[in-house]
Design a protein around this nucleic acid. Sequence first.
RNA 1: UGAGGCGUAGCGCAGUUGGUAGCGCGUAUGGUUCGGGACCAUAAGGUCGUGGGUUCAAAUCCCGUCGCCUCAACCA
Length: 475
Amino acid sequence: MGKENFVEQIADIEKDFPQWYTDVVIKTKLVDYGPVKGTMVIRPYGYAVWENIQSELNARFKECGYENAYFPLLIPMSFFTKEAEHVEGFAPEVAVVTHAGGEELSEPLAIRPTSETIIGNMYSKWLQSYRELPIKINQWANVMRWEKTTRPFLRTSEFLWHEGHSAFATAEEAEAETMKMLDVYKEFAENVLAIPVICGRKTEKEKFAGAVATYGMEAMMKDGKSLQSGTTHFLGQNFAKAFDIKFLDKDGAQKYAHTMSFGVSTRLIGALIMAHGDGRGLVLPPPVAPVQAVIIPIAAKKGGVVEACKAVKEKLEKAGVRVKFDDTDSSPGWKFNEWEMKGVPLRIELGPRDIEEGKALICRRDTLEKTAYPLDGLDKTVKQLLEVVRKDMLETARKRRDGRIVYAEDLDGILNGVESGNFVKAGWCGCRACEDEVKAKTAATARVFAEGETSKKCAVCGKKAEHTVIFARAY
RNA sequence: UGAGGCGUAGCGCAGUUGGUAGCGCGUAUGGUUCGGGACCAUAAGGUCGUGGGUUCAAAUCCCGUCGCCUCAACCA
């Protein structure tokens, strides 16, 4: 097969980004479509990425005092009606079980779209005294939201996520936790996923149904669109009042708790793909790459090559590197392209020539640079390179994003900005009509408030600006 | 849900005056190869998404239906 055929395997990233995305997720075997509309099978390669994300996040959550637990998938429908905004926001996309055991159920059961309600219900049973606060529980689970149209990782009927739920005695603590977990997300996104993110508060229109305030972490994809990659919600006493989460305080008074919640989902995998990928396919950041280094033998049947590869593999495994030795029959060129498409951070080429010279050729996926390194101490070299790649990927992504943030004074400015694939900062008076106007005219939405910046006038109505908002087209 | 596109071998596709299905890649076996998707030989693989209709005859024409992709609206 010639080069031309390979190029046809994935769509041109410049010309057809959506198709490129679909091609990449399917061809690299991250996912496959499930038999039910809107569902996806997360295949071993994709699930391995998720497991790495989970273990990095778990470590951070536990450091913040969270314990993992598991709440039921099925939630009584009546729970949803207890918080007015919540039911309004989620009702259209909730899947409901009406029959079981061959009979119609007396009360329909919702398949959780999120667990504030059932967790609120349980917290109310458990909580008695201020001494038991704060409660900090995280759960890893699947949730279901019946979306109209879907795309693997970005929007599917069922997806995997984590949701952290905590309850505090005071609003200040709950609010502080909301900000703290947003910082945890940011640190994780940047240092683990190598994705620079912009964090900030969401507008009323964009906030979580039932929250007092929602904060989001927005990441820029290569087409200039924004992907909401994580959110934290300050719920105030909304859910505490709806579910009767009360405690006896020091002063002997019964008080409602203040709660917050936060979550990130398998959508993060979509973020990885679209923030780092290139014309050859995936580019995975080393901390979450299922395979961090792949060893490709050249002229494998020549004496000593396989042995040398195995020796390098063993050495790297001992050093804690996730390494694969590709000893299949395909030609080296085929393997180069295959593993590049799969985004493996480092490729180690080892042939008779290298072995003679006591060296190995290492190719970085992010820059495609090839350099020969001594076999002696290769484990240390690889570990260092993985760290370099991680940092460089973050820097590269940061520069790309920073070069694509522009300011606008009016609607035309916002439109021009987003059409050229930028995030646009603009003033906003704070009224819903102006926010809707931006969306109607530019297809861009208010992503988050830009912290510490104040514009003079609203880009839509020209009145005094209350906020500076980052507008972008979003997934 | 609105607009557009598409369902033929695992993947990508060809196949209209309707006549009983083909190409490339991949797969299997054997051999030669191996520093950017190698080559030769042989072979396996299809109720043409699905239901109905027209016809002597349907992948092809008509009606319904299901699914997928993109854009728009909603969301992690």
